[in-house]
Design a protein around this nucleic acid. Sequence first.
DNA 1: AGACGGCATGTAATCCATTACATGTGCATC
DNA 2: GATGCACATGTAATGGATTACATGCCGTCT
Lengths: 340, 340
Amino acid sequence: MVKIEDVARAAGVSVATVSRVLNESGGVLPETQEKVREAVERLHYEPNLSARNLRKNESRIILILAPNFSNPYYSNVLSGICDVSRNLGYSTLIYNTYDSNALDEKLVSSLFQKNRADGMITLAVNRDDHWLSRYAWEYPLVQCSEYVEEDSLPHISVDNRLAARESVQHLIAQGHRRIGIVTSANRYLSSTNRMRGYLDALDAAGIERNEDLIAYASADYSFASGKQAARNLLTLPEPPSAIFCVSDILALGVIASAGKMGLQVPWDLSVTGFDDVDYTTMFHPYLTTVAVPCYELGRRSMLLLYDHIVQKPGAEREVYLPHQMILRETTASIASRESI
Amino acid sequence: MVKIEDVARAAGVSVATVSRVLNESGGVLPETQEKVREAVERLHYEPNLSARNLRKNESRIILILAPNFSNPYYSNVLSGICDVSRNLGYSTLIYNTYDSNALDEKLVSSLFQKNRADGMITLAVNRDDHWLSRYAWEYPLVQCSEYVEEDSLPHISVDNRLAARESVQHLIAQGHRRIGIVTSANRYLSSTNRMRGYLDALDAAGIERNEDLIAYASADYSFASGKQAARNLLTLPEPPSAIFCVSDILALGVIASAGKMGLQVPWDLSVTGFDDVDYTTMFHPYLTTVAVPCYELGRRSMLLLYDHIVQKPGAEREVYLPHQMILRETTASIASRESI
DNA sequence: AGACGGCATGTAATCCATTACATGTGCATC
DNA sequence: GATGCACATGTAATGGATTACATGCCGTCT
């Protein structure tokens, strides 16, 4: 393994000078720089990161806590993070969390103390994961998508409450008044806020809230649990004419369930999803949903984290990216239904 | 930051003894060990990884080269790798490759020389990526799913050729003789081998090969390109009665395309996929496909890599995991078609 | 001419854990 | 009782890059 000393010898200068050239710390004559660069090139020298990190007390590694890569939402966010981090000269260490809190806390604490990471991005903290704030004072942290409302740590997300409200208002505008919701039995703030938005829309339209029209799918937004939740709603004595779902996969489950019961979407039932992942246009009817800029959320998370790592003065602590309602084929006016 | 010296002082021993206890190198009295452990606990000491890695000349990091996390096939493999690596005390560094060769080579070379990783798992090498073999002699490497046939570096995969042959034989057994293939215009060995298997089956059944029945989708197995490829096959003067697809997503594209042209799967067209990702049972007709043990491939890759890192004597260089044909709803006997 | 400042570069301390080698104690052997 | 060995522990060198401080040179100002 060629080391800095070898380069120094080859270039006829001292190790300090080589280091100065490599780190662009200035104060080196252009012709000396040239000699050094030539030697680096010739010997294929690459600085040993362990040594550098030890001395500089950094790692140039970002820790990412993600619940599961298989979910297309998360995998898009991850792509965004990884692309930016590479450009900034960071490596990304991805840890699968499986939603087990105690383990995560221990892991994080240990990795940071060991000096393995310079900062952290979380993708799926629960709204009551207060342990995070203990680390945030010492270590740069950005919460992406999900965050803890009261802790006011740096976070980036879309306005879930507003987006949900708009979705439901779209259904109301089409004449629906019996509107169900399929949400998830997890502890994510996004679920809470989408529920709030759903209720906001009902309240604003003067539609009475109805516990019976609220169905819970499993915490991981699985297709199967979406089907089950839909069954619960559609077998009610007075079933809803529209269902707002807090995720696309759940919405697909709802559509599947409706189909099984002989209901045709959107004629017999309107359905909306959330996220706009790839599947939404893989089968007819194409899903009406809220597009969430996953990749961009990832990108911006990393940029924001970087600002905090280098302690940029004006670094933001709260960023909301715009969402967009996408009208496709799964919602229809209630008139079209009654005319049958 | 508490360091080993602090622990030594607190426990009333030397740094060497602390280190020996932590690394379980033996030769320390049980009561001394107890004192040390108590001090470590009390001070919340965690060894600095940069220092340890510098001294031991390792990183306890595994590099993973993956083309895109959004593909459910890869994300399952990644889960398998990550779970095992965590148990073995390794962190995983995931790099998105985007299929750009030159970049990858430079990246890999640099990361290893910098001492950033102890080994590497590749998920999507092209069948002609010979540059890998240059690193494999110096650095532990495992190729998962895709590998370079001639280089005989450690790899793990399923028997794609055999699986493809079985799929096509299933179609032949149902009476199909005009069988198309939708493959991908990439340079993966799996594509090559699935094509070989397809041809094997035709040859064995005495069915003449027909260039017209071979359609190419894009390199990334996109849904849209599957649709396009299917259109090319189905608009032939004599279209196929069955299509073998080298990936599930392509198969879904084919089914969508068929639907658009008024063809009903499986009555008017039989379709088979490959991989058995989640989508296959999200919509009717459920896809007949070959189940590939993605998660297990990931798990075994990491175990195998570990064997090579610690230079275990009998470490394998070639592993094939069993696949399984899963019959669902997208294939039907040709008789059922002619009877219409 | 002497003093001082700025600049390019060199020397050596530093980051922290590991480990080769040194030390000291106690027990067994002859 | 002297020698030797095993064992527990300590001391100090080591890994490779960064950087505070030292050095030496040249030019400028008084």
